[in-house]
Nucleic acid binder design. Structure first.
Length: 280
DNA sequence: AGTGAGGCCTGAAAGC
DNA sequence: TGCTTTCAGGCCTCAC
């Protein structure tokens, strides 16, 4: 579910209410996520202070003052709710973890339980199995046209499928892959090896733009995703092609009767939306 | 090495 | 109205 913009929005919300917070209780109602929450998770977290919060790919990392860090992934349907520390809260369906701090209460809700919550020694985090193969962040200085060209060299996969490969670019998911390709005017069916430097320049710019605009809008609210305060993100109203099968794309100047419209295809097992006229 | 299918889960929406 | 099927922001494993 949540892609980079949604995770970034959640991370920023957590930063406001949990940075420097003292954790005094951890209640786990269901450990059975994509991986089981480790047995001693509560022990590792309780009675410690959260000293830093950051995002890596679609993961949120909470650094504790104990030398351990929490690694949190929201899967498809994971949601984080943030409540006032003095409010009495009755757990709702699919609430699996409740972390209470002196500054706020953090609730993890995940209907499909594809999420993941674990911990690692802070000094070992870069080499952790979940992070070892993760590629560069789209907002990193190193994410450049030449980097893309280098990664795409001789690669015979569809560019859309490659955008979802977290070992190349970290954080792009199924919505923003379609949206970024639309903005770059590149067909999802193009093969990586056929992407020119000029294409790569447009694609890098489009990825950064699309993700930035989505973050500014607080992410996309489709089914499960809501911001931690319960409000919705608004980027779905700016989607140009995702979920727009059969509609005209925003840039379309075609005659209504021409039959030009957004197409939906399946690539790498995932729905892919594009405008065949705009995207070449 | 790289790709496609299947699996993990639940629930909303669409189809009948 | 109800029952059944399809599909969903991710990602891992397993066959080919």
């Amino acid at each position: 579910m949540p892609e980079l913009p949604e995770v970034e929005t959640i991370k920023e919300a957590l930063k406001k209410v949990a940075d420097g917070a003292f954790v005094y209780s951890v209640d786990i109602y269901n450990r059975n996520l994509r991986e089981n929450i480790p047995d001693n998770f509560e022990h590792i977290v309780r009675n410690h202070i959260i000293i830093n919060i950051y995002r890596r790919a679609k993961y949120i990392v909470l650094v504790l003052d104990s030398g351990f860090s929490l690694i949190w992934h929201l899967g498809m349907s994971g949601r984080i709710k943030i409540l006032d520390s003095n409010v009495s809260y009755i757990p709702e369906k699919h609430d699996h973890v409740i972390i209470k701090t002196d500054k706020s209460v953090i609730v993890y809700n995940d209907a499909r339980r594809f999420g993941l919550l674990t911990y690692v020694k802070t000094t070992d985090i870069a080499s952790h199995r979940l992070f070892a193969h993760i590629g560069i962040d789209p907002f990193s200085e190193d994410f450049s046209p030449s980097y893309l060209i280098q990664m795409f060299e001789n690669k015979k996969t569809f560019v859309k499928v490659a955008l979802l490969d977290q070992s190349i670019i970290a954080g792009i998911g199924n919505i923003y892959a379609s949206e970024a390709l639309y903005e770059a005017k590149i067909s999802p069916l193009r093969l990586c090896k056929d992407i020119s430097f000029n294409d790569a320049e447009r694609l890098v710019t489009a990825i950064k733009n699309t993700l930035s605009r989505a973050i500014a809008a607080g992410g996309s609210t489709l089914k499960d995703y809501k911001k931690p305060d319960g409000s919705m993100g608004y980027f779905q109203f700016q989607h140009c092609v995702y979920g727009k099968e059969g509609k005209q794309c925003p840039a379309c100047t075609c005659d209504r009767m021409s039959g030009c419209k957004v197409k939906k295809i399946v690539l790498g097992g995932r729905s892919t939306f594009y405008c065949p006229r705009i995207q070449k």
